[in-house]
């Protein structure tokens, strides 16, 4: 299934946000400071398991980094 993740086209098997994060993040990546938006709407951490992903979805996966 084709998705857009952080502006790039991806082929993914993920059924929900939690599974997509497993595909996208390095193994052992801390989940602190991570946030996800699905088609422009933020998905709260507690909903990652339930938030279903469909073909053509636009997903943003971000993290907190040093900043000024």
């Amino acid at each position: 299934m084709e998705l857009t993740v952080n502006g790039e086209v991806r082929i993914s098997q993920a059924a929900n946000v939690a599974e997509l994060l497993k595909e996208e993040l390095e193994e052992g990546h801390s989940q602190r400071g991570i946030a996800v938006a699905l088609n422009g709407q933020v998905v709260p951490r507690a909903e990652w398991q339930n938030a279903r992903i469909s073909k053509g979805d636009r997903v943003e996966i971000v993290r907190a980094l040093p900043g000024g």
């Binding site: 993040l25 040093p66 900043g67």
Partner: peptide
């Protein structure tokens, strides 16, 4: 302290400033 929000990079996570 101020922080920024950026797309996760496949190049790696760098250090964990939040922690």
């Amino acid at each position: 302290v101020t922080m920024s929000i950026r797309r996760v990079s496949l190049a790696g996570q760098g250090f964990d400033t939040v922690r």
